[in-house]
Amino acid sequence: MTESTGGIDMDEDSSGTIKKFAFVNRKAPYGTIYALESLEVVLISAAFDQDVSLVFADDGVYELKKGQATKSVGMKNFSPTYRALEGYDIEKIFVEKESLDARGLTADDLVVPVEVLTSDEIATLLDEQDVVLSF
């Protein structure tokens, strides 16, 4: 997004072609760069007013774990940024139940409200997308 458009007149430019995008997050937050890169792409894509869903599965559910404190390891704690997504009109956040169960986690352990779906439901959701981006 550039300063001059600021996303303000994007609706006219894109002339109503809204696609369904899903971002699938499957990596733990700090061991690799995938989680942070995904989040940045999601924030940028928000400027294009598409139908965006975020899916968290496997170790990706750890990205949303409450209580992250990275001062001692000298890395940026980006978990608070997931709470900003609502302001970017990204409100469809899905987490795979099987992945939570396998890690002893529940939706209450996560920094944002999510919709917990089974693997089958995730499969259906992904099948309905125009574009699936995997991280």
Partner: peptide
């Protein structure tokens, strides 16, 4: 523990 704390896993 710094790695546990970074990941929010220090209490489990």
């Amino acid at each position: 523990w710094p790695d546990l704390e970074a990941r929010g896993m220090q209490d489990s």
